[in-house]
Amino acid sequence: MDILSRLIDLSRLQPALDIRCQLQGAFVIGHEQAEKGTLPFHLVLGGDCLIRTGKGLEVRMRSGDFLLFPRGEAHAIVGTHPKAQTLPLKVTQEGMLPLRTNGEGEPDVDLICGHFNHAWGSSTLLLDTLPDVFHVSLIEEQSEETLRTLVGLLRQEAMVEQPGALAIVTAMCLALFTMALRASGASPLEAPGLLALLANQRLVRSIKSVIASPAHPWTLSELAGIAAMSRATYARQFQECAGMTVGAFLTDLRMSLASSLLLQSQRTTADIAAEVGYQSEAAFGKAFKASKGVTPGRFRQQAQ
């Protein structure tokens, strides 16, 4: 499994669609701060609109754009024609999703609003390093024809109530999120984080090695050698790129892997400790409690 797929798998995100909006003219639709563990997203199927955050940031959304709020920030969907007539909103049920409209004419924007639920105890290693407003144009990642096909299928499945439609739509939302992460990683990134780290062709070699063998007693010298750098250069560039030290990354990754094993298997704590690179169960328990606030046994009990 490649690095990005593994990080997404550890995040255990559960996508859900909330409503489809076909809006025109002047409109403002507010979204309150989401509950912890809920990550709202918007995908523009056609047209354009603005997303205005509670902090006053405005993001122009065009066809093929994907936007996620990793920390659930309050925001509003705003029309791009503020001087146009404000029409009353109505919600009807169209197939699998409610449909919000405010007129009978051609909409200025067609978008799907949904959210990801972040399962309790799952890894936040990837999500914590995303910006408060994660905005990507999927057209820049996929050809317009490919994206049009995917969006067309998503729109079609959301409109009808065929068997398996919900499974198809939720799987496609996770696929589109993955495409957004990949597109972001392929572009120049201003903020440090895991996506910037994965986009660095030299540093990513060492990350691949760590994820392939998390139990290995990695040293800074070994990792720097894999990246063909000196220890000092490797440590400095890693922190500048990832926004964390090499040691913090190793610990966070191992705790994420351990959490997944505790939640999804019946393996003993000692076995899991060895799997993620700890010589003793006691050392693992101490590191896990420092990271998660509870012992491995208590963590597993809380999940049950």
Score class of each variant (00 low, 15 high):
I51L: 14
Q14I: 12
H31T: 00
E32Q: 13
L57D: 12
L10S: 11
R12V: 05
I29E: 06
K55L: 08
R20L: 11
H31I: 00
V44R: 03
G54Y: 00
H42R: 13
G37W: 05
F27H: 05
H31F: 10
Q14D: 09
D9S: 15
L17I: 13
I19H: 08
T38P: 02
L50A: 05
L39C: 06
H31A: 02
R20M: 10
G56A: 09
C49A: 11
V44G: 13
A34L: 07
G37D: 03
A26P: 05
L13S: 01
G37Q: 03
A34V: 02
I29S: 09
L57V: 13
L7G: 09
P15R: 00
R12I: 04
G25L: 02
L23Y: 07
L7K: 08
D9F: 15
L17K: 08
I8W: 04
E35K: 11
C21Y: 15
V44C: 13
P40L: 03
I51R: 12
Q24H: 11
D48K: 14
I8P: 04
H31N: 08
H42S: 15
F27R: 06
Q22E: 15
L43H: 13
V44T: 15
A16W: 01
V28W: 14
G46P: 07
G56I: 04
Q14L: 10
G54C: 02
G25E: 07
G54P: 00
L43Q: 13
G25R: 05
G46K: 11
A34G: 08
Q24Y: 02
L45E: 12
G54K: 00
G30C: 04
D48H: 12
I29T: 06
H42I: 14
D18P: 01
R52A: 10
P40G: 06
C49N: 05
H42D: 14
G47E: 04
L13R: 02
P15A: 06
D48V: 07
L7I: 00
L43K: 10
L23F: 09
G30L: 03
E35T: 07
T53R: 02
V28A: 11
L50G: 04
R6K: 12
R6P: 02
R20C: 11
A34R: 04
V28P: 03
V44S: 09
L17R: 11
C21P: 12
L45W: 13
D9M: 14
L45K: 12
K55N: 11
D9Q: 15
L23G: 10
L45S: 12
G56R: 01
P15K: 02
K55E: 14
R20G: 06
S11N: 02
I29A: 07
I29G: 05
F27L: 05
K55P: 02
A16T: 10
P40A: 03
K36Q: 08
I29L: 09
R12N: 11
G25V: 03
K55M: 10
E32N: 14
D9H: 15
E32R: 15
L13M: 00
A16D: 09
E35L: 13
R20H: 07
Q14M: 10
L39R: 04
T53I: 02
L17G: 14
V44D: 10
A34N: 06
Q24K: 12
A34P: 01
H42T: 15
L7W: 02
D18E: 13
L10I: 11
L39D: 03
